[in-house]
């Protein structure tokens, strides 16, 4: 058990190293995308600043709280583009071009291998911009930080990453079952606008849908709430259990799907 954990850990970082070597190979590309990513972050903050500036609160979140939410979202979203997007794109492509067959013959968990082999570094800057703004906001807003709060934030930040990953993996795995889907990989990122607003924005059926049935609105809201000391235990527990069950379902769905997979005719 310990040995295989070590192996997976080592392989995870080996891939990061490989990607870093590739980055050095294509530096121009890196700078371009880093620039795009930064622009987006600036635009996004600018937009929310504009609105909060005029209203001073949104769905019960005041200016400071909104800033915590948006910087949390920015940090999470850095992973969307640096990590999930690339791996899931490669995964989907490998289903269609048959490259997946090679992955499946390897003595290692295929889902793990498919999920970690790619990444980019273009959004690293964005992550730190988000983190920087978060720290400054907490300071200026004089929000008391507790150790438990920080640990809880880190934990639920991770759970949110897991949730996004799992959801994305399930969507990508649908590629086994359809003839061709050009933009299936865009589906999860196109819901990002739901993540970045407070969960209270949604009312009525939309609220039920985005917090309970498919808790997209909890992704950034819950970790932020922990930091702000306004999280409710029920929501946290529900979200954690939901993510765990979804992760398990994703695994089942994957195992079931590769059974059907025949590779590209050849």
């Amino acid at each position: 058990m310990w040995k295989s954990l070590k192996k997976y850990w080592f392989i995870f970082w080996k891939f990061r190293a490989i990607r870093f070597m590739m980055l050095l190979e294509y530096r121009g590309n890196f700078w371009f995308w880093a620039f795009v990513s930064l622009m987006w972050t600036v635009f996004n903050f600018f937009f929310f600043d504009l609105i909060i500036g005029a209203r001073n609160e949104l769905a019960g979140w005041n200016k400071t709280e909104m800033y915590v939410l948006i910087s949390t979202f920015t940090m999470l979203d850095a992973f969307t583009w640096s990590f999930f997007y690339h791996n899931m794109r490669d995964y989907i492509a490998s289903i269609f071009n048959g490259q997946l067959t090679i992955t499946l013959t390897r003595p290692i968990n295929s889902q793990f291998l498919l999920s970690v082999q790619n990444n980019s570094y273009t959004n690293v800057v964005r992550f730190f911009v988000g983190l920087g703004i978060l720290i400054v906001t907490l300071r200026n807003g004089q929000i008391p930080l507790t150790l438990a709060g920080v640990i809880g934030f880190a934990l639920f930040f991770f759970i949110s990453l897991l949730f996004v990953y799992t959801l994305w993996f399930i969507v990508a795995t649908c590629s086994f079952w359809v003839d061709r889907l050009d933009n299936i990989n865009e589906l999860v990122p196109s819901t990002r606008r739901v993540w970045q607003v407070p969960k209270e924005v949604f009312t009525g059926f939309a609220s039920t849908f985005f917090s309970v049935l498919l808790p997209l609105s909890l992704i950034a809201s819950l970790p932020s709430e922990i930091l702000l000391g306004r999280a409710s235990f029920q929501w946290l527990a529900y979200y954690a259990v939901f993510t765990a069950v979804l992760f398990w379902l994703a695994h089942l769905f994957f195992t079931f799907s590769i059974r059907k997979y025949s590779g590209v005719a050849n």
């Binding site: 192996k7 891939f15 490989i18 070597m21 590739m22 090679i102």
Partner: peptide
């Protein structure tokens, strides 16, 4: 079908396989 990393020396792919 190929498993080598296109942009890297083959040695890197060998080392990865060694780990896997």
């Amino acid at each position: 079908k190929n498993q080598l990393w296109w942009d890297l020396p083959a040695m890197e792919s060998f080392l990865l396989n060694k780990a896997i």
